[in-house]
């Protein structure tokens, strides 16, 4: 399965990955509208930063995924192609997944009271964070 890998030595902390993730998961997919007019989704990628070190962190889509196992409603599920998504219609916001995730890659969407995470951009060949990283710090590879 292809996953997103990060090269932290060339991550420049610009956070364009977060911005494009928000746009991709917005209603209009228009960058200006998404930020100004619509309820803004949480980015599925978070740039962690300390001093000169930074890197983008997304869900690792683990083979042995604690979030899927611990989900009390079955909202957190593995798709056929291996990626893990959260079905927000079934998510009740119990945050168990957030507690068990070893990477801290799942966030609380306080507006909708559901878990929010990277879905590897359903429908896209390459996730938008990878495609738009200006310094090729993100790779999408087997």
């Amino acid at each position: 399965m292809r996953r997103i890998y990060v090269k932290e030595d060339v991550c420049i902390g610009c956070r364009l990955c977060e911005i494009y993730c928000i746009v991709q998961h917005s209603k209009s997919k228009n960058i200006i509208k998404a930020f100004r007019d619509e309820p803004r989704p949480l980015p599925g990628v978070i740039v962690e930063e300390k001093g000169p070190i930074s890197f983008a962190l997304q869900c690792r889509h683990c083979d042995d995924a604690p979030c899927v196992e611990s989900c009390i409603t079955g909202a957190m599920q593995r798709m056929e192609d291996g990626r893990i998504i959260c079905d927000i219609d079934r998510c009740v916001g119990c945050w168990t997944c957030i507690m068990v995730c070893p990477y801290g890659a799942i966030r609380m969407d306080q507006n909708r009271k559901v878990a929010s995470k990277c879905d590897l951009c359903i429908g896209e060949d390459i996730p938008v964070c990878v495609k738009n990283c200006p310094n090729e710090a993100l790779m999408y590879e087997e």
């Binding site: 060339v10 420049i12 001093g51 000169p52 310094n135 090729e136 710090a137």
Partner: peptide, 18 residues
């Protein structure tokens, strides 16, 4: 642009592969 600098925050901006 991460070229004429030794600041680790800035030198990262030039990915040598690119």
């Amino acid at each position: 642009w991460g070229i004429a600098t030794q600041d680790p925050y800035l030198t990262k901006r030039l990915n040598p592969e690119i």
